[in-house]
Design a protein around this nucleic acid. Structure first.
Length: 573
RNA sequence: CGGGGAAUAGCGCAGUCUGGUAGCGCGCGAGCUUUGGGAGCUUGAAGUCGGGGGUUCGAAUCCCCCUUCCCCGACCA
């Protein structure tokens, strides 16, 4: 590729809309242009990167036994009504009507469509297992798109769906996909971690996210410093403390706590610490009120509570509802004396206390020396709290450490969540009709592109990992008016192409400084510099973008020796 | 959806308070000089000042309404 022909409009200054590095650099280096919030045009360099990521994804999925298909972007409402998600998915599902007023939506994911496709033609266990994937544009009308490609509304995703005859076979498929994902992200040159995750709205029983480690990541992940347990903070299981206090003997008493609404205020007022308090949070799960107790110095993890309750919607109760349920102002809720229809669940750390202080469901009053099992029925123990740095690992008790991550892949064990209600069944060897056991698996291609930059950049620009760089090497003839410089650059460029290297020749009539700046900005992993100075000695120079390493090569041997370096940097196929 | 900020040439910005017919840097075209880390000079093209309404002799500037975009939060395969 010649730079004079390449449409890669670089900018000296970053558009002000860009905050995170990947966003700013993709705009500046001429990969991306914005068309609307969370909606972008991909320029030629971006297409090269996506093609190379796509190739790795396809190779590894094909190797894992999956087959590529292409499903419609616009899908009929009936399918989504059949699964119930037409109403459940909410405003994130972008709906449209055709000229006949028939309802459709833009596909944010494709479980319904794939089930409809498979149930039509697959009737026998002999046709299983089946694993189908596509790489396609998806649309989710995000509440708040942000950070460029990291959270766009329109994005390119690989989504795969597997169908097996039984749980055991589906488990093997899940593991095969997990392994394929591991290879894919390794081959992309990313530093990542597979983490245990909450299954969210997609549902299912087992789930791992693949998180690229980056400070700008939206997700918090915890990793045990002693064992291999790594999980999304939403899911992170904590070790339940054992009861350490002596059994309480004092009887329950009501104390006045005028105007003390916060845990800190109450603790200070009563001369104790927040860890002796039970914080009572009222939430509404699918319309039903629930009281959740966590220790005063802990925070409630809504995702954990939602998962425990099996709810699809959960939110903290509003002020009006709190008043209705407790008969008191906000800040004085407690588990004693709540209406009978309010279920109470408690974090093990609360239950480990011999006696607690909690709200009295009366304005300006708390209860002290409340004992579970004596003053109220012992609530069921549910891990409810948000993990913090240093908290004990639920598997081994080691200390948790925190990382920020960008979710680039997610694998779900779905079971029969979709196949059963949608009648995706087959006849087993005994002639019995059974629902297929499914899994689904996503990889965000456009998000990988951004995540790779978050992880690999400096003040000058992008430092692409070789396997996903738009081109592997750029040849820079520095003196545009020097015939020997030009012909040598041309020669090295041609040789590289002949050796199967993806090369770019910067044949633009520009000053050397500008070419260097653009080369660093765009992020080609290798640069070959052809200038009068080196040529006098029969040499050209090279620079490795990622490390800054520089060196000289003979004109005659340059392409060969660089090609060898590039081949090792490409990684195994 | 709550809070904050912004919209003026392709990009980055000034001008708005105090109304007088739009400017700077970069980029873009032409010419000359230059050429190892975003060159210099000369010259030129380019803007419905986000949109609509109002006040005024006169509005980028004042008033009202709307739209879009960005950030924080809530939300989220």
């Amino acid at each position: 590729m010649r730079m004079t022909a390449l449409h890669a409009p670089t900018l000296k200054e970053a558009p002000k809309e860009a905050e995170v590095p990947s966003h700013a650099l993709l705009l500046r280096a001429g990969y991306l242009r914005k068309e609307a919030a969370g909606i972008y045009s991909f320029l030629p360099l971006a297409m090269k990167v996506l093609a190379r990521i796509g190739r790795i994804v396809r190779e590894e999925l094909d190797r894992a036994g999956a087959q590529e298909v292409l499903l419609p972007l616009i899908q009929p409402a009936e399918l989504w009504q059949e699964s119930g998600r037409w109403t459940k998915y909410g405003p994130e599902l972008l709906r449209i009507k055709d000229r006949k007023d028939a309802e459709f939506c833009f596909s944010p994911t494709a479980e319904e469509l794939i089930v409809s496709l498979v149930r039509r033609d697959v009737r026998s266990y002999r046709q299983l297992p089946l694993n189908l994937y596509q790489i396609a544009t998806k649309f989710r009308d995000e509440v708040r798109p942000r950070a460029g490609l990291l959270r766009g509304r329109e994005f390119i995703m690989k989504d795969a769906y597997s169908f097996d005859a039984d749980e055991a076979a589906a488990g093997r498929t899940y593991q095969a996909m997990y392994d394929a994902y591991t290879r894919i992200f390794q081959r992309c040159g990313l530093e990542f971690r597979p983490v245990e995750a909450d299954t969210g709205a997609i549902g299912g029983s087992r789930s791992h996210e693949f998180q690229v480690l980056a400070e700008t990541g939206e997700d918090s992940i915890v990793s045990c410093s002693q064992c291999t347990y790594t999980a999304n903070v939403e899911k992170a299981e904590l070790l339940a403390p054992s009861a350490s206090d002596a059994p309480a003997t004092a009887v329950l008493r009501r104390v006045d706590t005028p105007g003390k609404r916060t845990v800190e205020d109450v603790a200070a007022f009563l001369g104790t610490t927040p860890s002796r308090l039970a914080k009572t949070l009222l939430v509404v799960a699918d319309g039903k009120p629930v009281a959740a107790l966590v220790r005063g110095d802990h925070e409630l993890n809504l995702v954990k509570l939602k998962a425990h309750l099996g709810a699809t919607e959960i939110e903290l109760a509003g002020e009006a509802l709190v008043r209705e349920l407790t008969g008191a102002d906000v800040g004085f809720a407690g588990p004693v004396g709540l209406p009978a229809h309010v279920d109470v669940v408690a974090d093990p750390a609360v239950l480990a206390l011999s006696a607690v202080i909690c709200g009295a469901n009366a304005t300006d009053q708390h209860f002290a020396d409340v004992v579970f099992g004596r003053d109220l029925p012992r609530p069921s123990a549910v891990d409810l709290r948000l993990a913090h740095d240093g908290d004990p690992c639920g598997r081994c008790g080691g200390a948790f450490r925190f990382f920020r991550g960008i979710e680039v892949g997610h694998v779900f064990f779905l079971g029969t969540k979709y196949s059963e209600p949608m009648g995706c069944t087959f006849l087993d060897q005994d002639g019995k009709e059974r629902p297929m056991v499914m899994g689904c698996y996503g990889i965000g291609l456009t998000r990988i592109m951004a995540a790779a930059i978050e992880q690999n950049h400096d003040a000058d620009g992008i430092k692409w990992p070789v396997p996903i760089a738009p081109h592997e090497v750029v040849v820079l003839p520095l003196n545009a008016d020097d015939a020997e410089v030009l012909s040598t650059a041309e020669r090295v460029y041609r040789e590289l192409l002949d050796l199967g290297v993806s090369a770019v020749l910067d044949d633009r009539d520009m000053r050397p400084g500008a070419k260097f700046k653009d080369a660093d900005l765009v992020g080609f992993p290798f640069q070959i510099v052809v200038g009068k100075r080196g040529l006098a000695e029969g040499n050209v120079e090279f620079k490795v973008r990622a490390t800054g390493e520089k060196g000289t090569l003979t004109v005659a041997g340059a392409s060969q020796s660089l090609t060898e370096r590039i081949r090792t940097a490409r990684g195994g196929a």
